[in-house]
């Protein structure tokens, strides 16, 4: 089974996480568990820098071979940087 989720961050019920970096910067992502469920992630659509989202609005889209999943923003925020993390299996 999946490793336990790190305890340094907060989670949504929908498999997103938010990590407070201080001074108003929050890093967000999706859990390992969600990535395992999707297994075959082929595209990630990330928000443009400067995009504003409200809490639980769609901020990104993850496409696996068999499904399209919206990623909800765990906080209301403005995007300052977005990268597909190294854990993503972009094949």
């Amino acid at each position: 089974m999946a490793k336990p989720n790190p305890t340094d961050r907060k989670y949504t019920k929908e498999h997103e996480w938010a990590l407070d970096q201080g001074s108003g910067v929050v890093v967000m992502g999706i859990t390992d568990h969600a990535q395992e469920l999707l297994t075959d992630i082929v595209y990630v659509e990330l928000p443009k820098v400067g995009k504003k989202v409200k809490q639980m609005e769609t901020v990104a889209v993850v496409e696996s071979v068999k499904s399209v999943s919206d990623v909800y923003s765990p906080v209301s925020a403005r995007s300052s940087k977005s990268t597909a993390g190294s854990r993503m299996s972009l094949s």
Binding site: E14, H15, E16, I30, L38, S67, S69, D70, V71, Y72
Partner: peptide, 9 residues
């Protein structure tokens, strides 16, 4: 994320 558990379980 809108992962439908029905799809997986």
């Amino acid at each position: 994320m809108n992962i439908n558990p029905e799809d997986f379980f």
